[in-house]
Amino acid sequence: METRSQLEFSLLSWGANSYGQLGQGHVEDQSVPRLSDTAALQSRVVRTVSGGGGHSVFITGNGEVFVCGQNHRGQLGLGHNADISTLELCPSLNQTVKNVACGWDFTLFLTDCGQVLACGSNAFGQLGVGSSVSHSADLLVVGCLKDPAVSVAAGLRHSLAVTDSGCVYQWGTGLFSHAKRALSPRPVPSHLCSQVPCLVPGVDQKTSHLVAAGSAHCVCLTGDGDLFLWGGNKHGQLATTEPFLSSPSLLKRSLLDGEKVLNVWSGWTHVIAQTESGRVFTWGRGDYGQLGRQASTSQNTKQQSAGPLAEGGNQEVCLPAEVKVLSGATQIACGSEHNLAIVGGCLLSWGWNEHSMCGNGSQTDVFQPQLISGLRPLLIGCGAGHSMAVCAVMTGSR
């Protein structure tokens, strides 16, 4: 009898799992990729995967949302505050969702009509609904955006959005203390201390279309392939020696060999950009291997005179440098301090590995991208300390 192969899909997850964010029905960390419980999906295809401090969000092909993990501030949008260790449909989302951004303990959903919905902690105004709400397990509409949003980003305690007119908005007070220390006695600009969406000045003449956020910094990418960065620079993630930038600053294209940027991602303290030719550059904090390149001894000696970059970084490492093994990557995802990439159909991981989120069975930090063998990844995503991949599995049928 003839045996035929058919393609099936599986969801694998690994790393930190204290709240059930791996969707495996338990709360034990996993040092290598393991199957998640996908019974609730009922053969739906997952097209977006994202994670926060202890929660995970999955968007299906028809725009439905499934969630699991930590829910103490209502960040799963389920109307209650109980943690969930297997995937569960978010029933209150009756709109089609096309993207999601997970902060530490809050979540932003972007619908297909450009509306932004938020849930979880609002202790720092990161939900964009004002100060009267401390947290919400129900989805709240983020107002004050004059046009439909096309991109959203969630940092540790702040949020960003780009509208279809190319304007950038910021809300949440997570950067306020950094700004106050750096700018004193000058006042802190309103976009760094607003609890509702506030227009970010300095990119008015540009058409932005993508935003990314770190723990204390912000990134936006324009349609012209230019990158603008602002916020905290403790680890050189802004590629400058200034300790803090209150408004967007253009990253000189010469730092990327003159190339335009096509995509950008951000961890808590590092940035990854891919240029028009497929090359991948990294900069910012690298002491856990976040940059995918080993710092040399000569670079480390420069740390003594690096000024504001001296704490947790150095001048040389903080400038963009190419990671050649990542050239041509079709997907990249950043956790807080670790990363995943799909290159040539293979899955690579690198960075902080305390909870085995690099998936190699150890807890030793990974300083250069390494292969996670045996997986055929189609889609990847990271939480702060966990990793997820949708993989193709060949099965035999008669």
Rank of each mutant, 00 (worst) to 15 (best):
E242P: 04
Q237R: 02
E242L: 12
P248Q: 06
A239Q: 05
W230R: 01
S266A: 15
V261I: 15
A213Q: 08
G231D: 07
V200P: 03
P243F: 07
L262E: 12
T269N: 15
K206N: 10
H270T: 01
V261P: 03
E242H: 11
T222V: 09
G223P: 00
T241Y: 03
W265E: 08
H217W: 04
N233H: 10
C198T: 10
G231E: 10
H209Y: 07
D226V: 02
H217G: 03
H209W: 13
Q237C: 13
S254F: 00
G231Y: 03
S254D: 13
V203F: 11
G214K: 04
H270W: 07
D204C: 11
L251I: 13
H217Q: 10
H270P: 07
G202T: 07
V261N: 08
L238V: 07
S266T: 10
G231H: 00
R253P: 00
N233Y: 10
V203R: 03
P197M: 09
K206W: 12
D204V: 11
N263Y: 06
P201C: 02
N263W: 13
K260S: 12
N233P: 10
P248N: 04
S215Q: 10
T240M: 06
S249F: 09
S215N: 14
V264T: 10
L227M: 12
D257N: 11
H270C: 11
S215L: 05
L227I: 15
G214L: 09
C218E: 07
C218P: 10
V196M: 06
K234W: 06
